[in-house]
Write a protein that binds this DNA or RNA. Sequence first.
DNA 1: TCCATATTTCAAGTATTGTAGAAATAAGCG
DNA 2: CGCTTATTTCTACAATACTTGAAATATGGA
Lengths: 114, 114
Amino acid sequence: MEMKSASDSLAALGHTTRLAIFRLLVQAGPDGVNAGLICDKLELAPPTLSFHLAHLSRVGLIRGRQEGRFIFYAADYAAMDALLAFLTDNCCQGAQCLPTAAAPLKRRRTAATR
Amino acid sequence: MEMKSASDSLAALGHTTRLAIFRLLVQAGPDGVNAGLICDKLELAPPTLSFHLAHLSRVGLIRGRQEGRFIFYAADYAAMDALLAFLTDNCCQGAQCLPTAAAPLKRRRTAATR
DNA sequence: TCCATATTTCAAGTATTGTAGAAATAAGCG
DNA sequence: CGCTTATTTCTACAATACTTGAAATATGGA
């Protein structure tokens, strides 16, 4: 993952409304949730929700699939995994970074290690 | 971790310059790097760097410690860990979220599980 | 004390982003 | 076809964030 793509994703999550949407979808699972239901659960005006869903989609953190009149949005778990990997990549060069843990933060799977 | 604090941290990382600074510090290890050196490595104007360091400090992702005329900044690994935990918390309710993996994204240690 | 160096604060201009009403599009149903 | 529902696009305003020159602060050394 490149710096720009990672920072775009992080910026997308760096807003309480979008973070709430994303977590809702992460916890909802791969089937996703339709836009109207997200509106209700988070009490958002439809245009506001649409704006944020478009933002999250644009950076690749979520995906929408049309089903009849509904659009179901689901988290892109692979994108989230890649983002977490980017953050902890090459963490602390093997030194002990977390005092309470025995070992450094685990390096997550990356394109190179898959 | 609360929603607001998490989104503040993510927003802080959602900027190429700050993300570059943070990764530099994550990879540098617990001893940290002094501000001037960060300036040189990332080719930033001192006030610009200072602005971003203040931002990252304010949200708790990094810490500075004075040492003579220098201020060494280091990543706060515990804060990063908590942030990653927040994102994957209660991920996909046990369903399989990553098609290539056998199991869902691991739930990281949280205050509740420590 | 005076100077050089390290870093921050101030100030001001520019640019970007978030919100929500109104209107538009799209899909299914009678 | 016309109606209802689901969602998005358009528009315009308000608010916030980024950058950098200039000035200020602080630390150590001559």
